[in-house]
Simulated scan of single mutants.
Amino acid sequence: MIPRHHLDPATLVSHAAGALSPEMAAVADTHLEGCAYCRRQLADAERVGGSLLAQQQPGAEDPARGERLRADMLSRLQQPLPPALPAADTAPARPPVDALPRPLQPYFGKSWKALRWRWVAPGVHMIRAPKASGDTLILLKIAPGKSMPVHSHRGSELTQILKGAYDDELGHFGPGDMADLDSDVEHQPVTSPGVPCICVAALDGPLEFRGWLARKLQPMVGL
């Protein structure tokens, strides 16, 4: 399935520059494994980043060229999706059915069956990865047809849908889709009927819940 929601251009630029935390990079790389469009955008950002680096070396003749390259890169990354992806850019070979995405294996192990979910609320289970930086990396499994509390974010959040789906104010998010969110977004995900929604999320700040009960329970969940 071709993803309909992608990494933000600014996130791709940060990733190309090596500026994402290990947790954020793991979620971004999980999306990139299955998204040819974002892989092409990342390659563009890396090429322009190389040019920007060259501009910073001694002997660079035109400092203004770096700013022009940066503006051009962001402009290209913000172009609408192309009608079709080039045949030459194919997704990596599929891993075994029971295998977790490769970027997540250092944090959660190799196998779906080996996961040990922790109950955090009715219909909600979670696994928290050990921190490699100050950011939080979690796997969430949410029962079908469940409404999550309305919340916003004190920082950035990258959420990649692995199985199932949910809907919120930003649209429908299914397997392969990326929710690249910042502090301007307030939403209430509602999982789709049928199967649990499983996603991986990296956060660099706590959530902000609107309801008093969710705020009361927040220290217990640790998000």
Rank of each mutant, 00 (worst) to 15 (best):
P3D: 05
L12T: 04
H15A: 13
H15E: 12
H15Y: 10
A16D: 02
L20D: 00
M24Y: 13
V27Q: 02
A28S: 11
D29H: 05
H31S: 07
H31K: 05
G34C: 05
R40I: 05
Q41M: 08
R47W: 06
R47N: 09
G49C: 04
G49M: 01
G50L: 07
L52K: 05
A54T: 12
Q56S: 11
A60N: 11
E61C: 12
D62Q: 13
R65P: 05
G66H: 05
R70P: 00
D72E: 08
S75Y: 08
L77I: 05
P83T: 08
L85C: 03
P86R: 14
A88G: 01
A88C: 09
T90W: 08
P92M: 07
P92D: 11
A93C: 02
A93S: 14
V97I: 13
V97E: 14
P101W: 04
P103G: 02
S111P: 06
R116K: 14
V120L: 07
A121C: 00
G123V: 03
I127Y: 07
A129P: 08
K131V: 00
D135G: 03
L140W: 09
I142H: 06
I142F: 07
G145V: 03
M148K: 02
H153A: 10
Q160D: 02
I161L: 08
D180G: 09
D180F: 12
D182N: 11
E186Q: 12
H187Y: 06
P196I: 01
V200W: 14
V200P: 12
V200Y: 08
A201M: 06
A202Q: 12
F209A: 10
F209Y: 15
F209G: 08
L217G: 01
